[in-house]
């Protein structure tokens, strides 16, 4: 495996479109539920253990080589909010473009051909990781890290937060991020025997509700 490939995939500068999305923190800032470093940390922790765990499981299963179309359906079943499904597919489309330039693969082309509107981002991430020679737990790490890293980075702009504080939040979540990635990869290892039902489906009611609210705003800084 190439450790540098994992750093590239998880880098916020990797041109996969993530910088335009706040992971729900823009809506949380608007209702003043996130207003400082402590509330940002609580937000990132909640997202890591819900959306983060679920997307990490899907990424790990895709990186393990399980049927990407079945995993794309599994992502649909785990994403009841239409606005969040659309965001996930848009990000999947953007990551597909970046993957073609960096770690192209026949498996990704097959998925893209079957999902012209874009496949779900965690599934594309997993296939890209696989093409880069990474393991399922690597893919889970990238997904779990992004689930907290996205909101933390967005909060710097939304709250004029000190970037040092945002980085401290991510550092404090490091051990939990590792645990989520390991749990996701363990679940993905059970898919062969138990099917995709073995993957985590951890959810958050507020992220679903506010994701739909945010999509209806006419003025917003982030796309989601």
């Amino acid at each position: 495996m190439s450790r540098a490939a994992l750093l590239l995939l998880a880098d916020g500068r990797f041109p996969a479109g993530g910088h335009a999305h706040s992971g729900g923190v823009e809506a949380a800032v608007a209702r003043r539920a996130v207003h400082d470093t402590a509330s940002l940390e609580a937000f990132c922790r909640g997202r890591l253990h819900t959306t983060g765990l679920t997307t990490a499981g899907l990424s790990a299963a895709a990186a393990a080589g399980h049927d990407a179309l079945l995993l794309d359906d599994a992502a649909d079943a785990r994403t009841p909010a239409p606005a969040l499904r659309a965001v996930s597919r848009r990000l999947g489309r953007q990551m597909t473009r970046a993957a073609r330039a960096t770690f192209p693969s026949a498996a990704l082309e097959r998925l893209a051909a079957h999902r012209p509107q874009g496949a779900h981002q965690p599934v594309v991430l997993g296939l890209t990781a696989r093409a880069a020679g990474l393991t399922p737990v690597d893919a889970a790490h990238a997904a779990a890290y992004e689930s907290a890293g996205g909101p933390a980075t967005a909060a710097v702009r939304l709250l004029s937060l000190d970037p040092l504080d945002a980085s401290r939040v991510l550092a404090r979540l490091g051990v939990e991020t590792d645990r989520v990635a390991t749990a996701a990869a363990d679940a993905a290892a059970r898919v062969a025997a138990e099917g995709v039902d073995a993957l985590p489906s951890a959810s958050s009611p507020l992220l679903d509700i506010t994701g739909e609210q945010h999509a209806a705003w006419t003025v917003r800084l982030f796309a989601s």
């Binding site: 949380a28 819900t50 489906s201 951890a202 507020l206």
Partner: peptide, 18 residues
Amino acid sequence: DQQAAYGHPEPGWDGPAV
């Protein structure tokens, strides 16, 4: 397919994201 987990010791369950 959705799982919800609330109450101690679930991390972050009562925070602004959940």
